[in-house]
Design a protein around this nucleic acid. Sequence first.
DNA 1: TTTAGGG
DNA 2: CCCTAAA
Length: 701
Amino acid sequence: MVFKKRQDHGFNGFRLPTIPRAPRSVRRGLRKKTVEDTQICAFELLASIAGKLLCESESSASSNASEGIDLLACGKDAVKQEQEFEDKPFKAEWLYQRNCGDSSFAFEMASQNISHKSTLKEFSHAESDDVLERTSFIKSFDCSQKTGGDVKSVICKSKTDSENYSSKVEGGSPQFGESSDANVNIEAERRLEVVGLKNEDANKPNICSSKVPTELFLESPAAINSDSNVKLPLRQNSVPNACFPRHRNDTKLGSRDDDENLSRCFKRSTKLKAFRPPTRIADQRIRKLLTSKYWKVAPKLKDCELPRSDGGLKPLYRKRKTCHDRQSRQKCQRDILFKRRKLFDQISVVTSDGGFSSESVSNSPEKGMTEDKNDSAAILHGANGVSSSVLGHQASFHSKDSHVKFSIKSFRVPELFIEVPETATVGSLKRTIMEAVTSILGSGLDVGILLQGKKVRDDNRTLMQTGISCKDNLDSLGFMLEPNTMQTPPPICSSDLPPLLSCDSSQLLTRSPENLVLDSGISDTLPDLPLTNSSNHVDSNHDTVSSPTDMNDKTTPDTKAIVAVPAMSMEALAVVPLNQKTRRSELVQRRTRRPFSVSEVEALVHAVEELGTGRWRDVKLRAFENADHRTYVDLKDKWKTLVHTAKIAPQQRRGEPVPQELLDRVLAAHSYWSQHQAKPQGKHQAGTPKIMEAPAEVPIE
DNA sequence: TTTAGGG
DNA sequence: CCCTAAA
């Protein structure tokens, strides 16, 4: 494809980190090894850089790190491009364990430092290039809440100018008493990604993107103290407030100096580059994307699966770029911008993520639950409300000492599209952005709770019933802000689609969660939810999922998703987030599970008895002609499982029990056809009776 | 598009 | 069920 060799980038100064490959990805990776090996991407570079930075930050000044990034940013567009991915994932949930004296702390890595720096560099660089930004596309606007410190006004904090960037890192909260968990402080963090258009040729705008992440982090003692904090391999309880590390300090970037961190860093960074999905994404979807022609060039991503639960993993995958080199990338962005422009004349605001997703959630089952939520800013009102409701909800649960503490670190505001004249002042730009954000937030938001990626719809359930009371689940618990469904109360505990929602919205509310759920479920390392069984309501969402009519969108690049976004008014915005972009294109709907009924099994067995294995298409046609949801692959798979089921002890079988008689026939047929490879033979060639008579005990082997 | 298999 | 390599 476009890039064949990493050497093209000419980065010799950075060593590429060794990226551990996830077991699952290994297999695929092997197949495409040639591709992967020969293709380099900014991802790797970033990864290496990130790792380097991390390392350096620990030992030496972080300045070096920033320089490194700067270097890349200026010299390589690809890298620059990728950077936007970087900040989010990092901060999202890099909880670390840090040793301070004899005490250990868990904290979030302030990865923003990295991105921050890089951003600055980029930004300045862009300016130096005399790039006029006519159109700014705010890809994401983050408002994160952090607990533990003082409240920071998100809005106030965020600035679009570089000066702020450098300073923003400072917001901090001095005191972190062990009892501070009673207070939920909201820290705001925001990131702005600005994609400017430059007019070079008359009609050929050149895109220059620069991201300006502004992030403020506050430690959350609550989360840290909790021994049940799911987020990390947290150490234990004792958390001295005294030397709580402030990662705002650039030098704090890296925390521990053990290899583990380093490796994690690499992993992280690697992933980051790949995507920047607002929420979790199924690895499968990722894989799909990766395998799509658009992503072939960045195969490494597949290998970067974090061995972590979805909570940590998903956020890493953010919107990925379909452009890999400068040219193509610019072209893509250009297209995107154009398309978007078509859709939005003025200050159109589009939610890219289909809502606002919480960056991460941490909790602690400790007694004291966070109660005070301070609105860091009017804008965050919605977000705060969310956390509040959540907390309140759980309140009714303290019957046992089981309190669930939530710490919503941040909610990401969806993508915004803003267009202002070149002559616009910075101040006006700020105001414009502010208006856009306000319009979004002001239109009303609903809070969505995602558990294991599944949207929990039944508001009447208790947290315990929902499975949220379990810390294990919290790991995969997520909150999201989504367009308010307006006066219509959101559907509760029913699988009904919100009637008033537009089609897109419906998808947002149902499909997305669905995907998420599946995603998390797919995660190899994701532990099963202990309470899965009790959270049936969640499963009900499956039913709400529309038929996979959008499968075609699997490989849809961002651009397409964007294009697909219908022109909408501001009002519509609230209801129709640009979700499709990330959700639809990246998260492909997984088919709902439809266990085979006994009758179906019977039909299948019968068909196979006659047709044999290896003729699944015929089997489908014969026995499942009208079952459109059963593909020949499904039948094949089912047969496979049937054979397996038949071989195992009845006690080991699960699901709807299949009559032994059928299983016997399965074994018989399987045995028969295993020997009679002559599948093409007459369909009835294999005397059905004969097969049926075959004893079930017949060893298939 | 189907098959055949691994996940 | 998903995802793919092959056919």
